[in-house]
Write a protein that binds this DNA or RNA. Structure first.
Lengths: 254, 254
DNA sequence: CATAAACCTTTACGTAACGTCAATGTCAAT
DNA sequence: ATTGACATTGACGTTACGTAAAGGTTTATG
């Protein structure tokens, strides 16, 4: 199937100006130009436009999108998986916002009180998202393939049950950690429970366990922006808090 | 509690430039200016900023936001209820996008085909949103309460409808599954129909769908005695049969 | 066959919501 | 007393298009 600008624009729900602009900045060029100078798009361009729109939906600026989709190592399928991960993240952020608005409604009715900080929960995420959009591409380029390969290899070796178990653990870590963070005490029972869950989770992936390795990973959560972003996505400072808790758990000096 | 620009900015996760701009365009003026010309914000401004940020999150432009929040008939509590409605809408749209990306992944793996139109499902909504943002404020001012009431009714109706739909699906799964079990063939059309119904049912509850999740649940039906008991209550072996059918449906190896 | 409607083209200026200097003043703490 | 972190007001820059102008092409219709 071939499309002119307007046809493709209507299909995708964007303006023809947008497509011309995308051509201008070299992010989406038509398959060919016909004898009258009209832009003609075909299958590959339809799929690429979809990819671009996923990135845009997730708030990435066109410059970044361009550097990703024009990269020779761009893998559409991997990108789709990444889109899905980001969309799910976005949905949990939306849930935080919805919880926020719920509490705000309750507050106006005097059914509860909110601190000023709580009034902006779920919005702050934006900053992190933008940060990810800015540095994410670069980080992917740095660690990308290596990390992907590694995790894929592990994944193949795991049975589905193991996979489920690890997912369950990861989930429990997240919720326990969120609760522990509220207490503010990395030595407290909740934080130590989170650390222990994290040990279990790690043992899954490594097949073995060592206190040194555990502490090392914990430190990495603070040093490596990718992990920091992941753990801090709900509450900034969570990565650091987890590291502190794990240091105490492993008996490491902080 | 009183805030300077920077303090309030950090609290809300925006830049101080943004707050100065909001002052400039008259959308959020500080409570007062101190003797050195500093902007000082207090409680009312914190709450108003939250409102503004909800509108912004939903894609409304500042001009519209201004005309709403500066209107003498602006009702913060009503606005919060409206925010919630819009956020929930936004979430269902996100779910459409997630379903889209799921199908797109399946398509790249050759597990299904997609029309070009389907590739942009969930994006198109944007246009409607923007349209709503443009003319919504005006319409609300004109029809305000009536529209709100209507949408509230729709929400209530929707949830009941959804509830009914899921019950209907569950019922259909049970009968189809019973018939399919008679055939003894988990790859047959009846069993596959049951698997598909089960997918629909699952999508209802999860808001999204993934093969892995589907297969995981299927395995759980066999592993967890509570579920096994439920599905086997009529015919022992039904849980296992359903799992096999779903594994075939999702293309999983049994 | 003409002609209007509905496309397409490039060029170019406009806009929203800030980001980012620059030049300057204020405040708290060492 | 000075340093560093804050504040102020301009003012120009940027992104991702919108919008209009001036014109060529295609297609449907009288």
């Amino acid at each position: 199937m071939e499309y002119t600008v307007h046809k493709l624009a209507r299909l995708a729900g964007v303006s023809s100006r947008t497509l011309r602009y995308y051509d201008e900045i070299g992010i989406l060029k038509p398959a060919r130009i016909n004898s009258s100078g009209y832009r003609i798009y075909s299958q590959a361009e339809v799929d690429l436009l979809q990819q671009i729109m996923f990135y845009r939906e997730l708030g990435m600026d066109l410059n970044n999108v361009k550097s990703i989709v024009t990269s020779p190592s761009f893998d559409p399928t991997q990108a789709l998986l990444e889109h899905k991960r980001r969309l799910l993240e976005r949905r949990t952020q939306l849930d935080v916002l919805i919880a926020n608005v719920d509490r705000s409604i309750a507050a106006t009715e005097g059914r509860c009180t909110m601190t000023d900080k709580e009034k902006f929960e779920g919005f702050v995420q934006q900053m992190i998202d933008e940060n990810e959009a800015k540095y994410g591409a670069e980080a992917r380029q740095k660690y990308g393939d290596e990390a992907v390969d590694q995790s894929n290899a592990r994944l193949k070796g795991m049975t589905k049950e193991q996979h489920d178990e690890s997912a369950r653990l990861a989930n429990e870590i997240e919720t326990t950690l969120a609760l522990a963070f509220e207490t503010g005490d990395p030595a407290g029972p909740l934080a130590q429970k989170a650390a222990d869950l994290h040990r279990q989770w790690l043992t899954f992936w490594w097949g073995s366990y060592s206190k040194e390795g555990h502490a090392g990973v914990a430190q990495m959560y603070v040093d490596d922006e990718r992990f920091t972003a992941y753990y801090d996505k709900r509450q900034p400072g969570t990565a650091r808090f987890l590291r502190d808790a794990i240091f105490i758990y492993t008996g490491q000096k902080a």
